[in-house]
Design a protein around this nucleic acid. Structure first.
Length: 823
DNA sequence: CATATTCGGGG
DNA sequence: GTGTACGAATATG
């Protein structure tokens, strides 16, 4: 063993470490699991386990001679041979019953699908299961290993191509709950050449790349200018910038590399440019190259260095608790870090780069700032990520990129292993189609009466669906048992009942999650602590996802009956609360799924709190109605007609004077600036100043200005992205029409380009009236279009609430009437 | 009204 | 990678 690692070697050949990342390789015809790890002393190592064999399960109809037949199975295909190496017969639980199963081993992971394809069609086979788990995940679940928590292994140092010491494990086990602390984080961010239109990985070079770590900050750029900043370093060209990027990452040796939306932008971009210059990005600790896969949003992976994209984590784990509706780096940093981002005019970067390099300093500073924010965000969210790893039992890379259904599913798979339960299969094509057709009744929504309200009280069912699942034992295997007379689910036309004697697997799992969360909340009462908070939040988020999982068509534990029962109970209980509230003289203004909004209307806060106390004793199990808070004022806007299940659209003013805005969406880029501006201002005036008249005057003023074409053309530009080749469009929208014009003018038109256009006066479709901003002279845009299709739609619902547009709004289609009203 | 298209994040 | 992959809003026909 190398001297460096002696401190991590307690006795004999034992070594203790934390797993950061897992992958497998086939070496000399055998599969090897690579555990990219960190020792307790902080050294990076790779531990290889060569002893884990691929397997899956076969459930026979009757156990005749199936084992023997399977064991003899050998397939030749494309000059490769695939064979079963051995079988074992076991007793396990499947669909709530004990069954005999044959555990079938193969030589390599890739053999599984070939062997399984043959066996699945055999007459005597009832089912084939667990044949489609990624091998490294199968390993973790089976060995009961949780990444980031302490492992101990008997090891031997071996020789392998690697940047860090490599050991082969003779034996390996989890030892306690010790968790990796203070991983080394390196944040990165790039700025690229961009004329404000298209983000084009192929065409536009990276101009600068920034790094931010514990004691490290640097910006690399390839245009020289005078600067005193020591963090700025110059290279000759973009190719050298890319090489330098690699050098720096290798020199710093981070455990975690992070960025904001770095899966979708920074790392794929760097990857693309590296390919262009034939720079090999073999950053993996095993010398493997960074891999960028792109289905949907791309993902960038480096073996042994965990790539953490803070954006996806924040959007997933924090969206419930964040106020912001927008997930750009600025908004997120402001809310999560309290750090306001200093903005620069990025549209000018290309011009400054080409013509005024002496001004590049502020862009370098900006570049560094983004890395710094990404770094701080990573530190902030890491406790949550680590806790999710500990709950689900998969590496950081995986848990941060899985959707909720996947997180739930892998948690269930982990639990299945511990309970000797065979995991159900994913649906086949036919089954999938059936499931997708099935629609069922969802939550109850009490349509808000639009209006401005004072003293709004909000109650919430704490974790409504999870507590229903737990309290009513909602589990597929417990449906309509023969062993007891359980209560019927309040759902007309059905006779669903869930066993009251035996706890179902899924209800048991969610029960456990809820209990764990309650214990943590208890502990937090004694001492607040970020880690505990992260943990309880994850438990909440995960248990909240169970209901959706039941109804998710691709779920292994899909159950329409369970999903329907859960929403049925949900409607039943929320109705109870609403009825009681009305009975006790409260005025209910809105309710959606698990929350109820009412106004005090002369009653006191104390009476409102007493109301919750009067409900709770009547609720079963762990269900509970909570007093969420009181808001001095708020506005409710009705959803546009047609949408089923009224969409939440409201804004509340809390006691500290802050606005909670829900569902008002105008910050998308395909809204003109003027529309966004007007909406924001109107909400502000109405809620903060409580002055509808002023808001109305403001809008009238803007409409007037538009009609006189006094608003600058820059504020009426609409931006839409060209998503595919012009020829492949079936319908020619305005942006496609403009793209054609651009091309006819001899300009480069590329997919992904942002098309800017202004709607001008004239006849026909919008596409016919769309012009390039540069073609618009003297602000000669179509004022009526902007009044009727941009500004008024952005605020009409707000004014409707204020009682201003009763008659004019009667007809949805004739919005010009509303326009007339605003004169 | 149904169908097609785009948004998100990043520069 | 023993692969799998969203959900909502808006415009056009």
């Amino acid at each position: 063993m190398s001297d460096k690692l002696k401190g991590d070697k307690p006795a004999g050949d034992k070594i203790q470490f934390f797993v950061l990342d897992v992958k497998y390789k086939v070496v000399n015809g055998k599969s090897e699991i690579y555990l990219f790890s960190k020792t307790k002393k902080g050294k990076s190592i790779i531990v290889i386990d060569t002893q884990f064999e691929p397997f899956f399960y076969v459930i026979p109809k009757k156990n005749h001679e199936l084992s023997e037949k399977i064991e003899k199975l050998k397939v030749e295909k494309n000059e490769e041979s695939y064979e079963v190496t051995k079988t074992e017969t076991l007793k396990m639980n499947y669909n709530g019953k004990e069954v005999d199963v044959i555990k079938v081993y193969t030589n390599l992971p890739r053999d599984i699908s070939v062997i399984r394809d043959i066996i699945k069609d055999w007459e005597m086979v009832a089912s084939v299961n667990e044949y489609d788990f990624p091998f490294s995940r199968r390993y973790l679940a089976d060995k009961e290993i949780t990444p980031l928590t302490l492992l101990e292994a008997e090891v031997e140092l071996i020789v392998r191509k690697s940047k860090v010491p490599v050991f082969e494990a003779k034996s390996l086990k989890q030892v306690g709950d010790d968790t990796l602390t203070e991983p080394k984080i390196l944040a990165i961010d790039i700025e690229t050449y961009n004329d404000g239109k298209a983000v084009d990985f192929e065409k536009n070079p990276i101009l600068m790349v920034s790094f931010y770590g514990q004691n490290y900050q640097k910006v690399i750029t390839w245009k020289k200018f005078k600067t005193k900043e020591k963090y700025i370093e110059f290279v000759e060209d973009e190719a050298e910038l890319v090489s330098k990027f690699k050098e720096i990452v290798e020199a710093i040796q981070p455990d975690i590399i992070t960025g904001y939306y770095s899966d979708g932008f920074d790392l794929p971009y760097i990857n693309k440019r590296a390919q262009k210059y034939k720079v090999k990005l073999d950053l993996g600790l095993d010398h493997s190259e960074m891999s960028v896969t792109s289905r949907g949003v791309s993902k960038a992976k480096i073996a042994g260095i965990v790539h953490l994209d803070t954006f996806s984590v924040i959007k997933k784990l924090f969206s419930q608790s964040l106020k912001t509706d927008f997930y750009d780096l600025g908004s997120v940093s402001e809310e999560l870090l309290g750090d306001k981002k200093t903005d620069v005019e990025l549209d000018n970067l290309a011009d400054v780069w080409d013509n005024h390099p002496s001004e590049l300093g502020i862009y370098c500073e900006y570049n560094l700032q983004d890395s710094k924010l990404a770094f701080n965000l990573a530190e902030k969210i890491l406790p949550n990520v680590i806790e999710m790893v500990k709950i689900v039992g998969l590496p950081i890379f995986d848990v941060t990129r899985m959707g909720f259904s996947q997180l739930v599913e892998w948690y269930l798979i982990k639990r299945s292993h511990l309970s000797n339960v065979i995991v159900p299969n994913k649906p086949g094509n036919e089954e999938l189609k059936d499931r997708m057709i099935n629609k069922y009744e969802g939550a109850f929504v009490f349509e808000p009466t639009p209006g401005l309200y004072k003293d709004i009280i909000i109650f919430d069912f704490r974790s409504l669906y999870p507590t229903i699942i737990s309290s009513h034992n909602i589990s597929p295997s417990m449906l309509n048992c023969n062993c007891c007379e359980s209560e019927k689910v309040p759902l007309e036309g059905t006779d669903y009942r869930f066993c009251k004697n035996k706890k179902g697997f899924l209800a048991g799992v969610i029960d456990d999650l809820i209990q764990r969360r309650m214990r943590i909340k208890e502990m937090m009462k004694r001492s607040k602590n970020d880690l505990l908070d992260a943990r309880q939040n994850n438990l909440k988020v995960l248990s909240n996802a169970f209901y959706g999982y039941f109804g998710f068509f691709n779920a292994r534990w899909y159950s329409l009956e369970c999903a329907r029962s859960i929403t049925a109970y949900g409607r039943y209980y929320i109705h109870q609360v609403i009825d009681s509230a009305i009975e006790q003289g409260f005025k209910v203004i809105y309710s959606d799924t698990d929350s109820i909004f009412m106004v005090l209307d002369g009653k006191t806060k104390k009476q409102a709190k007493d109301f919750a106390d009067s409900i709770n004793p009547k609720l079963p199990g762990i269900m509970e109605l909570e007093y969420e808070g009181c808001y001095p004022s708020g506005i409710f806007v009705s959803a546009k007609a047609g949408a089923y299940g009224a969409k939440k659209k409201y804004a509340l003013l809390d006691n500290s004077g802050e606005l909670y805005i829900k569902g008002f969406e105008t910050v998308r880029r395909n809204w003109s600036t003027i529309a966004k501006e007007v909406q924001r201002k109107v909400l502000d005036i109405v809620l903060k100043e409580d002055n509808p008249d002023k808001a109305l005057r403001y809008v009238r003023g803007m409409v007037d200005d538009l009609r006189k074409n006094k608003i600058d053309v820059s504020k009426v530009i609409i931006k839409t992205q060209l998503k595919k080749e012009i020829e492949s469009y079936d319908s020619i929208g305005p942006h496609v029409a403009i793209a054609k014009r651009l091309r006819n003018q001899g300009q480069d038109v590329v997919v992904g380009m942002i098309i800017e256009f202004v709607v001008t006066e004239g006849k026909g479709k919008i596409g016919d009236k769309a012009r390039l901003p540069s073609e618009v002279i003297d602000n000669k845009y179509d004022s009526e279009y902007y009044v009727n299709n941009q500004v008024i739609p952005a605020v009409e619902m707000i004014f409707k609430v204020l009682g201003y547009t009763k008659d004019d709004l009667a007809s949805e289609k004739e919005q010009s009437k509303l326009g007339a009203f605003f004169k």
